[in-house]
Amino acid sequence: MPVIEVKSLKKFYQVHKKEPGLIGSLKSLVARKYEDVKAVDNISFEIEEGELVGFIGPNGAGKTTTLKCLSGLLYPTAGVVSVLDFNPWDRKAAFLKQISLVMGQKNQLWWDLPAMETFILNKEIYEVPETQFEETLGELVKLLEVEDVLKIQVRKLSLGQRMKCELIAALLHSPKVLFLDEPTIGLDVVMQKKIRDFIKEYNRRKKSTIILTSHYMGDVKELCQRVIIIDKGKIVFDGQLSEIVEKYADHKVLSVVFGKEIDPKKLSEIGEVKEYSFPKAVISVRREAVSVAAAELLQHFPVADLNVEEVPIEDIIREVFSGKDLA
């Protein structure tokens, strides 16, 4: 029994269309014209208990809209959504107590108070027993290393510290299902890594089901085995991250370090030269031709070092979004 089931989900926003100019404004006062924005257009997927799934796509792809439908904030235009056997938009207390939604840009912490006050408040809201609260809080605080910021007014915290506290506030009631919308947005690289490590560890320990959205490959590459890629409201890929690489990267990358100067022209006989600046070169070679190319390089060039690498996932995704058919 999957924890999350989405069947043919559609969410269209009706936006009021105004023609330009004064006449347009007047016309729209009399007869409003509406236009559908197909934010989510017929998507289906299932997620099992304990999975950590990356939901990725460029800005405006429909990620936030999907999470809002799953957490009951938006009523779908069509389709079936079931989360923990509930209709999310009934917003039953029993359902809301088992989920959490964290939006990177929307804070729930009380701005003028220390984060601890919000935690205590959430304890009451979710009716968490005192001992369980202490235990969970202790564990989260230790994992995120925020012991010394809990008593400081939230407005005085750094963005990273605030995000950590947001996560704690969202997790105090030990939700079974966690929706994270761009949790690393705006953070520096070090902090991004800390948050990612935390999410991974949390998923491992608690076996909670997590969907994490990002427009940003780094997040997903390190965290998730399964990714769902969405673009323009449609799912363009759903599967193992490693599968994308196997299926859609028909090239591999040879990085070479030469011992002596070489003739760059000759290099292009091996494959497509992506970069050359002595002593390093990066050459893209068809997957099946890799061993031949490597052998040739070693035979005809003064090679000091040679590495065969997969094409970076970012590049593959970029190709996916630029319209290469994945079916």
């Binding site: 809002k68 957490s71 009951g72 904030l73 917003r91 207390a93 809301l96 107590k97 989920i99 959490s100 939604l101 939006m103 929307k106 729930q108 809201i125 979710y126 009716e127």
Partner: peptide
């Protein structure tokens, strides 16, 4: 307007 209402709607309150 700031969408903060969402913070309340996803909570049992």
């Amino acid at each position: 307007q700031e969408g903060k209402l969402s913070n309340f709607l996803v909570k049992p309150m």
